[in-house]
Design a protein around this nucleic acid. Structure first.
Lengths: 223, 223
DNA sequence: AGCAAAACGGATACTGTCAATCCGCTTTTG
DNA sequence: CAAAAGCGGATTGACAGTATCCGTTTTGCT
């Protein structure tokens, strides 16, 4: 066993390389469609490969997941940056919220990662840490422009996202666009209005405790 | 075994009667607090009784559940009738929505029954059938008074309820009142506003398909 | 071609969670 | 006090997923 940890110790055998690729593609597809609850058996079968092969390439499920999602989150961060740069603060805020929900709807694995009990994964909390200050900035600017109700805070954004997850799941097969309707309603609900309105019943969660909610909103359940 | 199905075939032994009562109380308490996913083992233990005793009194879990919930739903129906009778249509509508959410929050078993995969239970669909026309009436009157946005329909009410379920679960231990904040936001979102606003992205589900969503919003797995 | 190492496949073991049963022991009651 | 009624909880069974093991196949090298 020469230099176990050095760079590219030896090229993968042809069949191994092919299978590894197939597994990654199958995992990508099934995770997107069915969320993280897609089992490794399903993935192996979908890839036309035995379970053993999956485990040979990826010691465990988390390892497979981690590798697969780096760039998907990059997209989220990029869109968030775009939203922060939007000259119209309200448009920036709402299009970020909408994008984030669409992302969850089109990729159920992302939804599970954003909300489920996987928050512990190093990668996810790093993403959250980058997103949070941008959310605060979006909220600050929309407040300043008088378009966002003053009693809505940055901590409300992730909770609103979290609420969409279960609805996305529930309506996915029946009416895949339905979640938009209720997100629209929520967005109307946070928009400033000229008249005085009764205050909200209860304050938002402290920003640093929002994660604890997200963890609990898991909707991990499948056929 | 004389007259198995006739009235009071024979009095329960004293200890049996006491245990039966304890089981009912424990089930009531635990179902309320933890939802239908409370296991019969938990209930037995909480009642200070063996599992066997639970099964002797109640052939299976559904039987225990069914008996326990008749009157809880009666309360829901009664409140709904009150809301329909409210001279202020908007106040009637919102207080019904709020009550229904509070009921879910204070009794997680009701939440599970309203949304989970238990819709099949005869009793639940009967309740739904009674509630639906009342919801339509509330919406019709709030529309007529110009307080409810015209593009909100009766089919939206159960979906809004369904959305609250997962949030209630997620925040139950952390901040048991949090769900109110987001229900307030949704209520603001369905309130009529003087200005023209962009239409909602997508129409509501047909009223007779709403159940199919409710079934999927379960946070508790089915029997 | 021939052979050893690498990789494969999928049956199988293991894990965890619950519902539900069984039977030797305890309590009640007449 | 003895038989009937009831009890407790270990145990079984079902199920769904993760992970391992090992006999067989493929590959790469000479």
């Amino acid at each position: 066993m020469p230099h176990a940890s050095s760079e590219s110790p030896r090229p993968l055998r042809r069949d191994a390389a092919r299978n590894r690729q197939r597994i990654l593609e199958a995992a990508d597809e099934l995770f997107r469609r069915r969320g993280l609850s897609a089992s490794l058996n399903d993935i192996a079968h979908y890839a036309g490969v035995g379970v053993g092969t999956v485990y040979r390439h990826f010691p465990d499920k988390d390892q497979l997941v981690e590798g697969l999602f780096e760039q998907r989150f990059e997209e989220l961060v990029r869109r968030m940056e775009e939203a922060v740069a939007d000259p119209d603060a309200w448009h920036g805020l709402t299009s970020f919220i909408r994008f984030s929900t669409e992302l969850q709807a089109s990729d159920h694995a992302i939804k599970d990662l954003l909300t489920g009990g996987h928050v512990g994964l190093e990668r996810i909390s790093r993403i959250r840490a980058r997103l949070m200050p941008m959310g605060e900035e979006l909220v600050r600017r929309a407040h300043a422009d008088g378009q966002l109700r003053q009693d809505i805070e940055a901590a409300d954004l992730p909770v609103i996202q979290a609420m969409m997850g279960p609805l996305i799941d529930a309506s996915a097969e029946l009416d895949p666009d339905l979640h938009r309707r209720y997100l629209d309603i929520m967005i109307r609900g946070i928009a400033a209005r000229p008249e005085q309105e009764p205050p909200l019943s209860t304050p938002p969660l402290a920003l640093d405790r929002v994660d604890e909610i997200m963890v609990n909103v898991s909707s991990a359940r499948r056929r």
